[in-house]
Every structure is written in C-alpha cells, then in structure tokens.
Design a protein around this nucleic acid. Structure first.
Lengths: 346, 346
DNA sequence: ATGAAAGCGCTAACAA
DNA sequence: TTGTTAGCGCTTTCAT
C-alpha cells in the first residue's frame, strides 16, 4: 500500500515514464493497448498523481487560498460553505487562513499561501489593515484575487459585497418607523469599507427622516468587537450621554452579541429602553432574549459568487477589461428587539 | 519582485547552488565571507525557500491537516484556535477541512491531505463514519494522527476528549436536583464515542438517583442535528409520549439550538414545562431565551493538547510505547433554562 | 571550502 | 507509437 509513482508503473510494465504519463492523461498518441494496460495497472495499484510534484512543475496547485478575519463567526463560516461548494465542484481545494483581525497575520498568511502556489486568493481584509500593498503586488504579478465583504476601495479586481448601504438604511429606517429617534451606531474601524458603507446608510436614513446626524452617537470598535472591553466601553459611553439613545444599530456579529451582553448585564429592557438591530448573520437570532432584529447578508451566495469570479479569473488569465463589483441584497428580519410594531412617521 | 531561487543567487554571486544552499542553512563548512555574502544578497532580494520544492524532496511540509465535521460551530472553531496557536508557535501551518458529517468527504479530505504531504493529522470523526480503515492504514504507514472529541475506540494513538461521561452525569444530576424526573436525551448516532459516553453518564446519573433508564426517552439524530427535520422529529416524538418529559438533555451544539428552536415554535415554556441542558459551547448561551444551562468543553485547551501531542509524534518518530488518552474536565454553567433553584433529592 | 550530479514525481520538447 | 532528456527548486553525497 505504499505510494506508487509513474516510475513504478513504467518499471512494472516495461515502459518509459513518459509513455505512462501520456497514457494516464489519455494522450491521443498512445496505443490503445498500451493505454489499457497502463490504466488498468494504475487502477489496480491505486495510483494517485503527486500534487506536490505537479505544483513544482506547473507552479500551480488547483487550490485557492482564503484569508478572512475569523471563522468562529456565522457570517464567515456560512460564506466559507459557499466558497467550498463551488470550489469543490470545479475541482479546487480550499485552504483557509484566519487573520484574527491582525495585519501581520494577514500578511504572513498571504505570503505562505503564495509560496504554496495557490492559484488564486479570496480575501476579506482584517480590521487593522490599512496598507494593502501586499495584495497589490500580487495582483500586479498576475495572481487572481477576489475580495469580499471588507474590500479595498481602490484596488482593481473583482469584489463581492453585501449591499451595506441599503441594509443599514433599511435597518435605521425601521428603527425610525418604530418611533425611535435617538439612534446610535456601534461599528468597526472607520477605514473598513463595510464601516463606511454602513455608516453612510445609517446617516442617510436619519437625514431622509429629518433626524440630524450626530457623530457622538457613533462608536467605533478598533478590533471589530473582538476585544470584549471595546463593546463595554462603547455601550457605556452611550449610556452616559445626556440624551441616552433609544436604539442602537450594531454593525457586526461580534459587536452585536457583545453589546447585547453588556445591555443584559445592565438590565436594560430591550426594546422598551433601547431597541437593537444587528448587522449580523448569527444563527440563533430568533432564540435570543429578546429575538433579535437583524440585517442578514446572503453569505453563502457571496461565497459562491466570489469563488465563481475567482475561478473564472484563474482559468481565463487574459485580463478582463472590466472588473465587477457586485453588491448583493441583504434582508431585514424583524423580531422583538425592535418591538415589531411600527408607528407612522414622516 | 519576481520569486527568486537559489539558482539566481548562485548565478549572481558566481557560486554553485550547493554552496548557496549550505550558506543559507549556515553550514559549518562554508567560509564566513561567503556566508555573509550569500545571506546579505538573499536578504536584499527577499529570498524565500520554495516550500513545494522542499516538500517534494523531503516528503514533508511543516504543516498539519485538520479534519472535523464543521467549522460553523463554536466548539470546533474554538478548538481550531487552540490548534492554531500551538502550531503557529511550533512553526507549523494548519490546513482545515470539513467533512460536513459525510464519510465520503472525510475520506476524500484525508487522501488529499496525505497527498499534500501533511506531517500529521488531527481528526474528529464525522457522525456517519463507522469504518476508520482510511486512518488505520495511515497509522500503519507511520503517519502521526491524533484524534480529538469524536475518537475511534480501538485505534492505537493519542486521543484528546472531554470528560463526556462526567459532564453528562453532572448535567443530568443537576436536572434531577432541580426536581426533574422524566429526563429525555437527544443525541448523535450511537456509534460515535461522544454519544456513547454522554449516554452512559446520563444513564448512570439516572440510576444513581433511583430513576430507571428508559430507552424511549433517548432520541438519536443521524446527522448530528445538521438536518433540521431531525430535531423536529426527535422533539415531536418526545412531546407525543404518554409521559411527556419534563427535561431534555441535548448532546451537541446543533441539537441544542435545533431543539430550542422547535420548543420555541411550539410555545413550550422553558424550564417550567421542559427544562433544557445542552452539551454545547455556543457563545451566546447567556443571551438566549431563557439563558441556557450548558456543559461546556475546554475546547481551546483540547486543541492545544491535541496539537502538542501531534507535534511531539511528528518530531520524535520513534513510536512511543504507550499512547495517551486524555480526558479534560467540562464545566456546568447553570442558567435559567433549568430554573436554577435546586431542590433536595435522594 | 566549494562544486558537480543525482534525485524527489511529473510533463513536454525533441528524437527515434 | 514510444523513449530520452531536461527541468521545476532544493538538499546532499561524493568528488575536488
């Protein structure tokens, strides 16, 4: 049951390795007899080509690398499932790395994946990444990269995002329609694409309904809510305000659960005192106390589409004249954390 | 900024590739001058050895493969973080594959990882795996494997598990102490180690407290709760019984949330009508409605220890005379889903 | 102290 | 139709 190589087959069948190689790849120039012989023997011996050797030769690996902040997060793990299902069908393997919201680890992961000759990269930026030259260099060298979710603004390649602006607008408008006016927003670092877009949607909804935007109602969590104290601080600052908010729109999984936890500990009644909407794909939203109103992203579909685009890029290396930036619709799931009953506004 | 190889350095410095190679590995037989020259040039050109070439040569890769049911699961993703932190410190990369509770995918993933020359494997069996010969063969060939969580009974290698028996015993006893007597158990397929151990702990606690074990109170979910209808069916069967249970002990993340969801939909009051304890590491247990009493596994530590053992195996290939089977203590987090107040029993 | 050559497994250009 | 050879990047034995 030891690993068998082309050489072994060649020796056993008294052929040259190239003949065996060609036979295995069903080359037209090989005698049918020979082919049969080789194929049968290979089958019998359970021959499997050595992908390492292939990678060394061809500088590719039939695998794609995924770099994202963390997998212990419903949004990302759903997205991974979307990635895997497409990749699997197209004959690619998926190698996942977590940046844990660290720029250094993102760079290290990138280098490793590249040295491992992945054929392309699927990336969602860490919350601490402001410099993306490590990706730009690769793009310049011709390595296909598709960004998703947290995408760099300027880079010229395919991008898949949720309709962050629309989702936030909808969430905020929903809060307004349930009678809330002092709506706070807790979010990730401002330089992330998702942060800016969600903030913009929030702001636009306020202004469209005649509520002035108030920067002091916006709190930023530097580590995207990964550090527990961030949420604590953000919530506390809001509670300490003269005009305590009557609603909070939280911008991510981590921030949402983190804030909920703080509010619970402080025995704040949701939604009576403060209503909550989260931009989150958390799976148990309806099991929470109270069931959580949430803007849900089509994570699986985002994974699907990003992977399709990436594989297209890999398999058709001629640079497309135009790169796509797709924005997929979110859906607002209304539950009790926002009371549900809507009142008439404006 | 193209990839630079030893050959390039050799050419540039008018040396042979072997000299460069040795200089880079700081071999004693190389002239200090030459070494300095090479090192400096390599540094300047940002030389990085090609890991693919190394793998091809040495049949190893400084990477370890992880095969587990799914990552969209707090227990497993916490465990992965434990794995990564140790591996990272020891200079290994971690490649994660999901079996999605499918035997076929488990086998496919295994083969792929082996062909990619991982130096060792960390495995938690899929819920549909009954035949483990794919792992046994590898062990026979000398590939280090450490099993965790869902481990095969007979196989001779290191294993890291939670104290499933103890955790279940504690959970069940807790239910009994809160006055429950008709305690049901919803769990995974019986042939999984975790299922048997948890069932045994549950049973022992019942019997120790004079409650006869009743097989009809035990429901099995073939896909470990991954298929929504499984939970539905299990709960429904329990509700349809003549003696409807007054408590349910659910054996995993998926089963726990699945059952909670069904109970919510049926407007069953927890814990008044039915109390719930879950064997789960779900992160938001205290945010649930009601906050969930849970047996929590030291997932991160399990990942740490499994990885330490694996790397020890990899780096000291001499077969250890004895393999370890470590069982790590769980902790029972008591919350409102079991009322909290305990009554005096037996 | 340094270099030449072989080999890890595979494919493809070139020869026969 | 089949075989020979070189090369992907690296290390190591065996010269020198």
């Amino acid at each position: 049951m030891e690993t068998i190589t082309i050489k072994d087959i060649a020796r056993a069948l008294n052929l040259s390795t190239s003949t065996v190689s060609r036979a295995l790849r069903n080359s037209y120039e090989i005698n049918t007899e020979t082919k049969k012989l080789v194929l049968e023997y290979a089958e019998k011996m359970n021959y499997r080509p050595n992908p390492i050797a292939l990678s060394l030769r061809d500088s590719k690996s039939k695998s794609i690398g995924v770099i994202l902040p963390e997998i212990a997060n419903n949004f990302f793990s759903q997205l991974i499932n979307g990635i895997e299902s497409i990749a699997y069908n197209m004959g690619y393997h998926v190698v996942i790395f977590q940046s844990h919201e660290s720029y250094e680890r993102e760079v290290a992961n990138t280098n490793y994946l590249v040295s491992r000759k992945v054929d392309g990269l699927l990336v969602s930026l860490s919350s601490l990444t402001t410099d993306i030259s490590h990706f730009e260099e690769l793009l310049d060298k011709g390595l296909p990269i598709v960004f998703f979710d947290r995408v760099p603004k300027k880079v010229d390649t395919h991008k898949i995002v949720a309709d962050n602006f629309g989702g936030s607008y909808q969430a905020t408008e929903h809060l307004i329609k349930t009678g809330k006016r002092k709506i706070a927003h807790i979010t990730s670092p401002i330089y992330l694409s998702i942060t800016m877009e969600r903030l913009a949607g929030y702001r636009k909804a306020l202004e469209d309904h005649g509520i002035p935007f108030d920067e002091s109602y916006v709190k930023y969590c530097h580590h995207g809510g990964m550090v527990v104290s961030e949420n604590e601080t953000a919530v506390q600052e809001l509670l300490d305000m003269e005009e305590v908010p009557d609603a909070i729109f939280t911008a991510s999984d981590r921030i949402t659960t983190g804030c909920l936890s703080v509010l619970h500990r402080k025995h704040i009644r949701i939604p009576e005192e403060i209503a909550i909407v989260g931009f989150t794909n958390i799976g148990v939203a309806e099991l929470l106390n109270p069931p959580l109103t949430a803007v849900v992203q089509p994570a699986m579909d985002m994974g699907n589409q990003a992977t399709e685009l990436l594989i297209k890029l890999i398999e058709h290396p001629k640079k497309p004249t135009i790169f796509e930036s797709r924005s997929l619709k979110t859906s607002l799931m209304i539950r009790e954390s926002t009371a549900g009953k809507t009142v008439n506004v404006s």
